[in-house]
Amino acid sequence: MKVIFLKDVKGKGKKGEIKNVPDGYARNFLFKKGLAIEATPANLKELE
């Protein structure tokens, strides 16, 4: 799953980066803790 990092996550990504991460990791950790959001076309446009 492609995500946009909202905060730095040690060993995974830095704020503003767009990366592919495992689906479970994104849903169960990154999204729940507010560390990242899904890289949807709308979210990507908002980032620019």
Rank of each mutant, 00 (worst) to 15 (best):
K33G: 07
A39W: 12
G34F: 09
G34I: 03
E48P: 09
E48T: 13
R27H: 09
A26F: 11
L30K: 00
K2W: 15
T40G: 05
K7P: 00
M1R: 08
F29E: 07
D8W: 08
F5Y: 08
E17F: 03
F29P: 01
L6K: 03
Y25K: 04
K15Q: 10
L35R: 03
V3F: 01
K45W: 10
K33M: 15
L6T: 08
I4F: 08
K45M: 13
L47V: 11
A26G: 04
F29R: 05
I37Y: 05
D8N: 12
K15W: 05
V9A: 03
K19Q: 07
I4Q: 03
N43I: 12
L6W: 02
A26L: 09
I18V: 13
G13F: 14
I37S: 04
F5K: 01
G16T: 02
M1V: 14
I18D: 00
V21D: 01
K2E: 10
N43S: 09
L30T: 00
K7Q: 12
I4K: 04
Y25G: 03
G11T: 06
E46H: 13
D8T: 13
K19T: 08
V21F: 09
G34P: 00
I4R: 04
D8F: 09
E48F: 12
N43V: 11
K15G: 04
I4A: 03
F5V: 00
A36G: 03
A26H: 04
K19R: 12
P22H: 09
E38M: 11
V3L: 03
K10L: 13
I4V: 11
A36W: 01
K15P: 05
A42L: 11
P22K: 08
I18A: 04
I4Y: 10
E46R: 13
K33F: 15
L30I: 01
E46S: 13
N20D: 13
A39T: 02
I18L: 07
G16N: 07
G13M: 04
G16P: 00
A36F: 00
V3D: 00
L30G: 00
M1L: 14
M1W: 06
F29V: 13
G24T: 13
L6G: 01
A36E: 01
A42Y: 08
G34V: 03
K14S: 09
V3S: 00
G16H: 08
I18K: 03
G34M: 09
K19P: 00
K12R: 14
R27S: 05
M1T: 13
V21Q: 04
G34S: 06
Y25T: 04
G24D: 15
K32N: 07
N43A: 14
L47P: 06
M1Y: 06
D8K: 06
K12E: 10
V9T: 04
V3W: 02
A26M: 07
G24S: 14
I37G: 02
K15E: 06
K2L: 15
P41Y: 12
V21I: 08
F5M: 04
P22W: 07
L47E: 07
R27P: 02
K33Q: 12
D8H: 08
I37R: 08
T40I: 07
G24Q: 12
E17K: 03
D23E: 15
L6V: 09
L35S: 02
A26Y: 12
D8S: 09
A36M: 01
K33A: 11
E17V: 04
K32M: 11
K12Y: 15
K10V: 12
I18S: 03
M1F: 08
L44K: 06
K15R: 13
E48N: 13
L35E: 02
P41A: 13
L35V: 04
L47W: 15
L47G: 06
L35G: 01
K2Y: 15
E48Q: 14
Y25V: 06
K10E: 12
K45I: 11
F29D: 05
E46D: 12
K32W: 08
G13N: 03
V9K: 01
K15F: 06
N43L: 11
K14E: 06
I37E: 04
K33W: 15
E38R: 10
K7Y: 14
V9L: 06
N20Q: 13
K14H: 10
I18F: 04
F5H: 00
G13I: 07
D8R: 07
G11A: 06
K7H: 14
P22E: 11
A39M: 07
G34H: 09
I37Q: 07
G24L: 14
K32I: 12
T40N: 09
V21W: 02
K45Q: 12
K7G: 05
K2M: 15
A36V: 05
N43D: 07
G11W: 08
F5L: 07
K2N: 12
L44G: 04
K32D: 06
A36S: 02
D8A: 08
A42R: 11
L30Q: 00
K45P: 06
G11E: 05
P41L: 13
E46I: 14
L44M: 10
E46A: 15
L47M: 12
A42M: 11
V21G: 00
R27W: 11
L44R: 07
L44P: 04
L30H: 00
L35D: 02
L30S: 00
K19W: 08
D23Y: 15
Y25N: 04
E48V: 12
N43F: 11
K45E: 11
K7S: 09
E17N: 04
G34W: 07
K2A: 13
K45N: 10
N20R: 13
L35F: 11
D23A: 15
A39R: 02
L44F: 07
D23K: 15
E17Q: 10
F29H: 10
V21P: 00
E48R: 10
K10D: 10
L35N: 01
P41M: 12
L44N: 05
K7R: 13
F31Y: 05
G11V: 01
A26T: 07
L47S: 08
E46T: 13
K10N: 10
G16K: 03
L47F: 14
T40V: 05
L47T: 08
I37M: 12
V21A: 03
K12V: 15
V9M: 05
L35K: 03
G13L: 02
G13R: 01
N43G: 08
I4W: 03
L35T: 02
K15N: 04
Y25R: 06
G13W: 13
K33Y: 15
Y25M: 06
F31H: 01
E48A: 14
G24F: 13
F31I: 13
E48M: 14
L47K: 08
G11K: 05
V9W: 05
G11H: 08
F29A: 04
P41S: 11
